[in-house]
Design a protein around this nucleic acid. Structure first.
Lengths: 328, 328
DNA sequence: TTGAAAGCGGTACCAG
DNA sequence: CTGGTACCGCTTTCAA
């Protein structure tokens, strides 16, 4: 592998000058620049980012921590992050934490050993202090870590209220809310928002909670629907959960949306593929991902961060699992 | 950050000895070991993997190149790779090539600058020679690069034959085959396999090809089905395509599987979520991913690779988009 | 404008 | 068994 020394030799300059040229800092005469360019081309020189990391104590690696990339929500986020990182010359390391504290901690440790440039964290089980203590730029994506950590998130409560209200204006009265796992703030907020909507109408919906796992959720929903056949509207706090509900509705022979309406939350691509396509409270996932990456890179590169909290407004996306004609 | 020198000082030994201890090579007396351990604990020392990479010219980073992580096929593979990499102390960098030569080339270049330990490549548009020339362990996943590159793949032809035959034994006679993008070997093999099955029955199915994009595919399928309403069996060369077909069937009011049977290929999780759940030719994606990672790590660590080609046998997974009672 | 040289944090060879 | 030390490839003072 050709190194900076070789380039210097060919250009008949010192490595210091070549380095200055490479980093575009310090003085390099026009003439020298040309000789360096020439040498680089001639030798097909590529700087070693490892050596660079070592001397600068800073790499161009961004760590992306998600619970599980298999959850269809995260690939869309990951793709957006990766695109933005790519265009700024960063590289993203994928970390699946499985929402396990131990694993996340170990990841953090490993990443810090590589002088990771920054972290995008889409999980939130560790104590905020540990994220703050690692002394690396960080942004929270989708989940809030702490008021002091720059964050890109959705107003979950508002979104859920939107979803609940839509179900109501569409005539559903016997509601079921499928909440996400207990203790997950995102999920709790969605539940709260939904209940705000139903409270206003003096309704008292059934609430169940479930893990985001499809099969587990499907089973829970099936049981619930068996006991409460009167249910005519379901608000699910994730699209996966909503699709599980749709699946069970088909299995039980309930017609959607005629007998049972379903509203999801997230706006994953999958929602458009099922039949009927899923009405949902959608977030612009790509935008969230790119925004998070941008905020992180700005921090890394020491720029003033314009805003430390970006709240993405969720939007109701009406598709086929709700009746539209009934609106108003 | 505390470094090896600090440890050496506290343990009252030289850095050489500490290094030997750390790498478990060379001699270190029991007594010294204990002092080192003690010092490490005391200082909470973590070796810098960057420095290590520089001096060994080898990192613990594995590059995973996929076309697009948003394609539901890849998260399952990526997760498996990441799990295995994690357990061996490697870290995976996610690269989305978008099946663009230029981008893939740039990735390869960037990765080689970081002394990447190895590559898992799930794309195959570059000339084999470039993969071979980068002088890094590599394994091809799902797509074949070259006979000399260790590979984990599926017997696509056989799988497609299986799928085609199943459709036939189930009574479908007016067949449609939805192939993947032209020129993609995986897709071509699946088409070939399917045609083998139909040929044997003297049938001449309709064949269309489509990109793997859901919407594009759906449109093409809709047109085809409109022109050929007699179609009663569809073999899709990916689950996404099959789900698009299912989606269109619902839209057109065709009952699945009574009027129209569908068989997909891949075995992605999504297939179980749609209604009716998708009958498909499934590959064990997790196994493919872990196998690829294992083969790569063995190469990296210089072990004898037991086998350089692992052919995963595809399995017919009968679910709800085919009629089972008709079998035999 | 340019260059010499001291790191950055390890590894590994060689001598003791 | 242990220590001295020359790298690995690049960045960054400090002098010239």
């Amino acid at each position: 592998m050709v190194n900076i020394k070789d380039v210097a030799k060919v250009a008949n300059l010192s490595v210091a000058t070549v380095s200055r040229y490479l980093n575009q800092n310090g003085y390099v005469s026009k003439n020298s620049s040309e000789r360096i360019e020439q040498a680089i081309r001639e030798l097909d020189y590529k700087p070693s980012s490892v050596a660079r990391s070592l001397s600068k104590k800073q790499s161009n690696i961004i760590g992306l921590i998600v619970p599980d990339i298999k959850n269809p929500y995260f690939p869309e986020l990951a793709r957006a992050v990766e695109d933005m990182a790519w265009s700024y010359g960063y590289t993203v390391v994928l970390c699946n934490s499985d929402d396990q504290i131990e694993k996340e901690l170990l990841y953090l440790e490993r990443l810090s050993q590589t002088y990771v440039a920054g972290l995008i964290v889409a999980t939130s089980l560790l104590d905020p202090s540990v994220y703050l203590s690692i002394n690396t730029p960080i942004v929270a994506l989708d989940r809030i870590i702490d008021a002091t950590v720059p964050t890109v998130a959705t107003d979950n409560q508002k979104g859920a209220r939107l979803g609940g209200e839509y179900l109501l204006t569409n005539g559903a009265r016997n509601l079921l809310c499928i909440g996400g796992p207990h203790g997950l703030k995102t999920a709790d907020d969605r539940l709260t928002g939904f209940l705000e909507a139903t409270d206003k109408h003096g309704l008292d919906p059934i609430v169940i909670t479930s893990s985001f796992d499809f099969k587990v959720a499907a089973k829970a929903i099936e049981q619930c629907l068996a006991i409460n056949p009167q249910i005519d509207g379901i608000f699910a706090s994730s699209d996966t959960l909503a699709i599980a509900a749709l699946h069970i509705a088909h299995k039980l022979g309930k017609r959607v949306p005629e007998e049972l309406q379903i509203v999801g939350f997230d706006g994953i691509a999958l929602g458009e593929m099922v039949s009927p396509p899923l009405t949902t409270v959608g977030q612009d996932l790509y935008k969230m991902g790119t925004a998070a990456a941008t905020m992180l890179i700005e921090q890394i590169e020491g720029k003033e961060i314009k805003q430390t909290v970006l709240n993405i407004d969720p939007q109701l996306i009406v598709r086929g699992t709700t009746r539209k004609e009934a609106a108003k």
